[in-house]
Design a protein around this nucleic acid. Structure first.
Lengths: 201, 201
DNA sequence: CGAGTTCAGTACCGAACGGTACTTAACTCT
DNA sequence: AGAGTTAAGTACCGTTCGGTACTGAACTCG
């Protein structure tokens, strides 16, 4: 029950935790969980190891917080897309957002949720599982949105919400892989457009 | 100019290099380049570090050879697909092959070419670049095949071979990501089928 | 001004990393 | 049998890994 009021007692923190977390996110994004050493992380964050442990716990918890920040920041297009008026617009907005975020000039190429720990050794297993769940949650959100669209008559009777959600997520993940390999934004936007040709009705 | 005839001089190798390379491939496939330690690798290969260095050079060269083996083995569906008679059949065979290989029960889930080093620190950069090139080569092969199809009148006049190749590769990579996250074969086959709905004409 | 509390920095921990020198074992050829 | 050649095994190299005691410094409150 440690009070979290703004009455500061003790020596005040000399760095901005938000900015430090942002830098850590960028390192994880570029190098992956196992490829990012504490030296890489704290170097980019501009703090020492002790400060990082005091502020964030350990490497794994730092990664989880960096992923939350990624979700609310660069990956926010995911939730925004769900608010589009039609299922088709939702799918297009999701794919377009993934193209834009995975090819942002001032950020690492690709998607943290995909390349953060797609394969991992023993040390990276927790991160691997966290990211797999992160991707599945996104897919479930999309599926629920499409199910609602089906109930509203926004999708043809035969369409499967689950199948459509899986398809859109799969194309988005593929876009992330291509971006990580250096494929440019214009090419990937064409891919996103081509993917929408498979949309029903 | 060391002769490579079958006249064996010196102590004969006591392990099967092909089998050892196969085991190394499986470890890289499951754990990625940086996540696979020499202890993990040599443990699975059933040999000591010295034997591994004598037979394969170092970790990076072992990875390159494991990737070649992956190309000729689990990923051989890629070249086979190019031999299909029509562009549509090529695309379908490629996607179906990716579904089968990334969800093989007795192999790691996903694709070595995708998850081997999608993001990497400094130590994993060579592997990262090797895999990016590996994916691009596959895409170029597909693009050439589709260009030939266009010349043969096997594709509508407006179709872009490059765009179609990029689309098929992107879906295949997305399937690999989904498989790495535990999505099953039946679901992914539905995705592959759905992706073909975008095929022109 | 202490007393209490929290943060920063140095210096260090044991373990694991990729890689190698050196000895011993197993083979072919003369 | 002995020389020459190559592989296997042990034991070790320096470095880096994630993580932590411990010492001072900076702040609020009484």
């Amino acid at each position: 029950m440690t009070g979290q009021g703004n009455t500061a007692v003790g020596r005040p923190r000399s760095f901005d935790t938000d900015e430090a977390l942002h830098q850590a996110m960028l390192v994880f994004w570029k190098q992956g969980y196992e490829g990012a050493s504490l030296t890489d992380l704290t170097g980019a964050m501009g703090i020492t190891k002790t400060s990082m442990y005091a502020a964030f716990g350990n490497k794994e918890q730092l990664f989880r917080k960096a992923l939350e920040r990624y979700t609310d920041g660069p990956a926010a297009y995911g939730l925004r897309a769900l608010e589009e008026p039609t299922a088709r617009a939702v799918a297009a907005a999701f794919l377009n957002g993934s193209v834009r975020t995975t090819t942002q000039p001032d950020c690492p190429a690709g998607c943290l949720g995909v390349q953060g720990a797609l394969a991992a050794g023993e040390a990276g297993t927790p991160a691997h599982e966290v990211l797999a769940e992160w991707r599945n949650v996104a897919g479930r959100r999309l599926e629920e949105r499409f199910r609602r669209a089906a109930e509203e008559g926004d999708l043809p009777p035969g369409a499967s919400a689950r199948r459509l959600a899986l398809y859109v997520m799969t194309v988005a993940f593929g876009i992330a892989v291509q971006a990580a390999g250096g494929i440019g934004r214009a090419d990937l936007q064409e891919v996103a457009d081509a993917a929408m040709d498979a949309w029903p009705a």
